[in-house]
Structures are given as structure tokens and as C-alpha cells.
Design a protein around this nucleic acid. Structure first.
Lengths: 63, 63
DNA sequence: ACTAAAAGTAAAATATACTTGACAAAATAA
DNA sequence: TTATTTTGTCAAGTATATTTTACTTTTAGT
């Protein structure tokens, strides 16, 4: 299922998928796939995304 | 680095690594490796572990 | 001490997260 | 409209999470 909280948090900081990808060191397609819900990232990547967006794991990835 | 919070939460419920592994559908070695800190699990597995141990992502995996 | 269960560890195989490159669709701005 | 950026999506490859089998070491019980 889609991760709209991630998409929303990124938009709130006016970051593109490419900018977030660069900030956490992955490809743009990986960010796109996570937002789309295509596959589950590793906890390490989730933590990097949280720090880049100033959010916690529970805020972005708890269901 | 070791995940002592996970180890502690499991011990608090008196569960063995095997029991937790069965509860979340992975091998015992995977649980052992996560507690040992050998590699990073997927967010899906982290969520399953949290639910099995009645903890949140932030409680077990936030650094 | 003896026994059994639990935990630690390792190598080889498999499943899947992630990359790279590329192209089209949609959005934003001139 | 036209140009530019952003997003969506796909296929093939690479990196790594996870499994299986197996063995040793601790821990807990009797």
C-alpha cells in the first residue's frame, strides 16, 4: 500500500524524490517505489529517510 | 551494533529466539543476527517483531 | 556431573532490495 | 503553447537480506 505520510512529509519540506534520494544515498526509483508501496525498504534506509525529513519511525512507517 | 532493546523485550516475555522467529515467520538465525547487529532487517520484519513483542518501531529500532 | 534447551556462529544457496539506464506521462513555469 | 522539472514505470543487472544445514558453546534443570 502507498506511503502517503512519506510523500506528505517530503512535500512539506519542498523536496523532490531526487533530492530525498540524494540526501539518503539511494536512487530516485527506490524512493518512488517506497512511496508507491512496491517493496519494503530496510530499517537502515527508513532511519535515513526519517532523519532527512525530521520525522520518527513511528510517524512515517508505523501502520 | 547490538540491539539490546530487542533482546530485552523478548526476554521480558520469556520468549526464545526460536519462538519469536516462529511468531514472525523467519528463521532463528535471522533473529539472532538482528539482535547481534549483523545486518539490517526490512521494515516489514521490524513491524512484525514489534507486534509480536507489543512494542513500537521507535521503542525497538530508533537510535 | 549429566542432560537438554537455548544461543552463537559459519558456509552455501535462494529471495529480494536496490541500481542503472531509459522512456513516457504529468506537473510547473515561461 | 513550449520548455523544464518531476513523477511514474519497466527490464536487466548487482548487492545483500534471509534460509538451510550443521556444528559448537552457554545456559538452565535434575
Amino acid at each position: 500500500m502507498k506511503n502517503l505520510r512519506l510523500k506528505s512529509a517530503r512535500a512539506a519540506l519542498d523536496m523532490s524524490q531526487q533530492q530525498l534520494a540524494d540526501a539518503v544515498g539511494v536512487s530516485r526509483q527506490t524512493i518512488n517505489a517506497i512511496e508507491k508501496g512496491d517493496y519494503n525498504p530496510t530499517i537502515k534506509l527508513c532511519l535515513a529517510i526519517c532523519k532527512a525529513l525530521n520525522k520518527t519511525l513511528d510517524e512515517l512507517f508505523w501502520e
